[in-house]
Design a binder for these strands. Sequence first.
DNA 1: CGCTTTTGACCGGCGC
DNA 2: GCGCCGGTCAAAAGCG
Length: 147
Amino acid sequence: MEEADNILFEIDDYLLFDAELEEQQAMQRPFFLQNSVDASGSTTGVEGRGESLQGKRSSRVAFITQSENENLVDGYKWRKYGKKMVKGNPNPRNYFRCTIEGCCVKKRVERMKEDSSYVITTYEGRHNHMAPSELAQHGAAHFLPLN
DNA sequence: CGCTTTTGACCGGCGC
DNA sequence: GCGCCGGTCAAAAGCG
């Protein structure tokens, strides 16, 4: 398991926002993940940010991590429900769902086609529950949004 | 025994 | 309507 706490707290933070606010928030801090660094020293950057999802309730954010292991620890528990080869990428895409009952957050994980040492993780939706105990033990409140 | 992963089937949207 | 494509289902297998 790769340690990537700096990044993942930010992701968790982001997912607490409403979809309606997403575009506005993204504009105000377009590179809020840019300088996050995981324990191995890899620097990551935002892949996508709050593109307009008019009409849809989901929020979506993707980020890139240079990592051998694509199973990054983000404090949530996920169940894999699919795997697909997508066009133009020799690497498979994996689909996960949050295991908490009633929580419809999904994520997909795939390696970059240009450089397969990078992992792209895309989160979709908002958790309807707090993050599990590990985050709480670290004082997750510290990372909650200011509003 | 209760979960998770695996994997091909299935499905719906979209372009032609 | 048909086929491609991305996303999801679900049965079976795997695992602690």
